[in-house]
Amino acid sequence: MKVLVSEPGRLVVQLTQRERQEMRVVLHAMAKERRRAPPLTRGDPQGMPGDAAALLAGELLGGLEDARLAATALLEDPARCVQGKGGYGLRTTEAEAEGLLRALNGARVAFWEALGSPDFEAGERVEPTERNRLLVALLEVAGSLVGRWLACMAGDAAEEREE
């Protein structure tokens, strides 16, 4: 991933073919995992009726799905993700860059939740099933993409990887 243009409201990033494909796979796989709706509070400062809580949770998860769809459409749009010699030139507005970041991180969290929300740093492990192995791989790839995309948004030239 390499920043080609970074100016207010506009970001153009060069993606390798592999990076674009990783993004597409992660966003596609995210759609299959059901996210949990987070609680508004851990105490009880302001009891919220069940219907209102459900409505807000639905809105939140719908927002993440919108971000996923928008990011996918961006990567598939030949006018916005332009194929060239070195891979693809992804042209985004500031809002689109932010949406792609949210979607990639949302995917990472979705895979983590599907694994049972383990704390790997604390030594927790998951059953070595085929599905869990796939989820762990997706979690790692999504995390790597989040880190590299963040670096591009910050204007840093992220490490370019060879195909």
Partner: peptide, 11 residues
């Protein structure tokens, strides 16, 4: 929460 952070309101 829209950014997938764990945040809550507490009195």
């Amino acid at each position: 929460q829209g950014y997938s952070l764990q945040a809550t309101v507490e009195k």
